[in-house]
Write a protein that binds this DNA or RNA. Structure first.
Lengths: 348, 348
DNA sequence: TGACAAATTTGGAACGATCCAATTAATTGC
DNA sequence: GCAATTAATTGGATCGTTCCAAATTTGTCA
């Protein structure tokens, strides 16, 4: 059914020129005569020619215009938005991306990286699965393929890294809760022993001690970084002898879970208990109550990561750099600050 | 820094064999002697050889082992999960996927399709942007590249299609609401003039008339298929002269918005108003109240779509087929049926 | 008009793997 | 021991594009 693909030679023959000329037309070279260019382009359209990038990439000089993106959990909307941000930049830069989900499995991640290498990616953006080691990225670096790690870092790997200012964000959030008069502020959700978790807890701890408040370990309740994890965390928190009256949650998903758990226990988030999230996913704004959270702007981060990678690809030299993306606290209703967000349409 | 890539010829030279032998080893041919194979493999590891699929794909016979996936909105967790399902199947079949987001723009979608074609995809799975026309897929079909449309269909296009049984799902949901004693049941959210919307409204209408109930147009309130859209829809619904007491929502996102809007109006979803969603995204189960919804199993749909595409790629012949994926109503708390989901940990 | 420069065009020779036909080495049968 | 098989191995030629050096055409000016 499908006739053997149309090639430059077919175009050349039909247009009465050489394949070299067709090639020049394809790359919009100024060397070719306008009349010739028009004729060739007409034939290209007529025969339904499709450029074969694979063949072009064969010559060692060319860059493949393909990059790889691997995220650890695409079902988490934070990462989905991160990916969308990257997609936007890559698309307008004329790149296509292999986009895969490692589902937190280093083995799958390894396989995917290998597969992407075989397909000749020009660079890789990786939101590493837990347990990723520097060795996993070594071969890429060795063959001069730039790598940008996002969200999490890979210890020991000499790759560029882009992550949000977890410490400062957590500190700001807790300071805000303190300013609202809370003295027993918990840290809920998230998997301990990850860099991100540690940094956020550190910010929480320092803000408390700065205010002269105690920061006992029992107020740090690590669970899954998900809605279900949030529910579990608040359940445990409410059972504590001196139960907290406010909480900074590991991320927005956990914060939503905390809200759910509070309601199940007969408490209204924002009124009876202050909840602050981290990430500022899209739903944070439309949820009820609207979630006070540390805005990380995942799409923006994705865009910046993509831009960084493109810069490195174009530079040729791979000079690892680390960017700490600043964050800002977005005060909405869930912390009880009572500030009405003017972008919200419903207001009792 | 990066020495020119290692090729089969380098391997051949280092192992003292011909490149043909190396090639045979690479494809695990039984023709080569065990000792030779071992030696070649050792050299391959030693030199850090990376297979160049691009070069291999040049020969007309080979299939590229790359497929394309384009979704209309990756930030919507329904589609993110759909993509994850596809990713799983593709990964274990040894494929890599280009995965892009069209953001509902037919222009971007067109560009991405063109780019993917140039990179030689073996097949495409498309969740079409609104307004996609058969002509957009024509060239793919013409060059024998199988296409599977998911979730939405493309009128006039002769491609395989996989979508959920919207009509039956909506009908079941409304029947359930009727059985709970509701007589004024609205249809909230979703963009009118889309096939999916029409099918679901049709199911809603038929279930009502089957029960001898009226299905006036004013009870169908189309808005964005998002959380914000759900909020807007319920606001309008509550202003109606004979306000509904229950609603089937276009999708889960809208249903969550309806719950938010109900609370903002002082009504508790599940107790004062029955809410049913559509899709059964992950959060539906953990939300409070847990959402009664029509389960579409997006990951499962993604997996099935991927399998269908692989089947078509392997078959060579592209025989368009349409699969209607069955759905089932999952009764949780938001419809007021009061059934406690035993998988939920919190229960007052 | 002829010399010279500028503007266009054009054959190969890559790029890295596969595949075919053909060659060489190892085994077998008688 | 030698032909006939079978097992292994191997040179090209090929895929579709780019790039280089060289060839051709066109244009300019004395």
């Amino acid at each position: 059914m499908n006739k053997s693909r149309v090639t430059v030679v077919d175009i050349a023959r039909a247009a009465g020129v050489s394949k070299s000329t067709v090639s020049l037309v394809l790359q919009a070279s100024p060397l070719v005569n306008e009349a010739t260019r028009a004729r060739v382009n007409a034939v290209i359209r007529e025969l339904g020619y499709v450029y074969n990038r694979g063949a072009a990439n064969l010559r060692q000089s060319a860059s493949s215009r393909i990059i790889g993106i691997i995220v650890n959990d695409l079902t988490n909307s934070f990462f989905a938005e991160l990916a969308v941000g990257m997609d936007m930049v890559m698309q307008s830069a004329g790149y296509v991306q292999f986009l895969s989900n490692s589902a937190e499995s280093v083995d799958r991640q390894r396989e995917v990286i290998a597969s992407m290498r075989e397909h000749g990616i020009a660079g890789l953006i990786l939101s590493p699965a837990r347990g990723t080691e520097a060795a996993d990225l070594k071969p890429l670096a060795a063959s001069g393929i730039p790598v940008v790690a996002v969200v999490r870092n890979v210890v020991g790997a000499k790759v560029s890294t882009l992550f949000s200012d977890n410490y400062a964000g957590a500190k700001d959030a807790v300071r805000h809760l303190v300013s609202l008069g809370h003295t027993r502020i918990a840290f809920l959700g998230g998997i301990a022993n990850t860099t991100v978790f540690t940094e956020r807890v550190e910010g929480w701890r320092d803000a408390l001690s700065e205010a002269g408040l105690a920061a006992p370990d029992r107020l740090v309740i690590g669970t899954a970084a998900s809605r279900a994890g949030g529910v579990a965390a608040i359940e445990r928190a409410l059972l504590l002898p001196e139960a907290p009256t406010a909480a900074l949650c590991f991320n927005d998903a956990a914060a939503f879970g905390v809200c759910d758990g509070l309601r199940a226990a007969g408490k209204e988030p924002g009124r009876d208990f202050a909840v602050v999230g981290f990430d500022d996913v899209i739903e944070a704004e439309t949820a009820v109550p609207a979630l006070t959270t540390v805005s990380v702007d995942p799409q923006g981060m994705g865009r910046r990561a993509a831009q960084l990678l493109l810069k490195q690809i174009n530079a040729g030299r791979v000079e690892p750099e680390t960017i700490v993306s600043s964050v800002r606290l977005v005060v909405r209703q869930s912390c009880g600050a009572g500030q009405t967000d003017r972008t919200r349409r419903i207001s009792a």
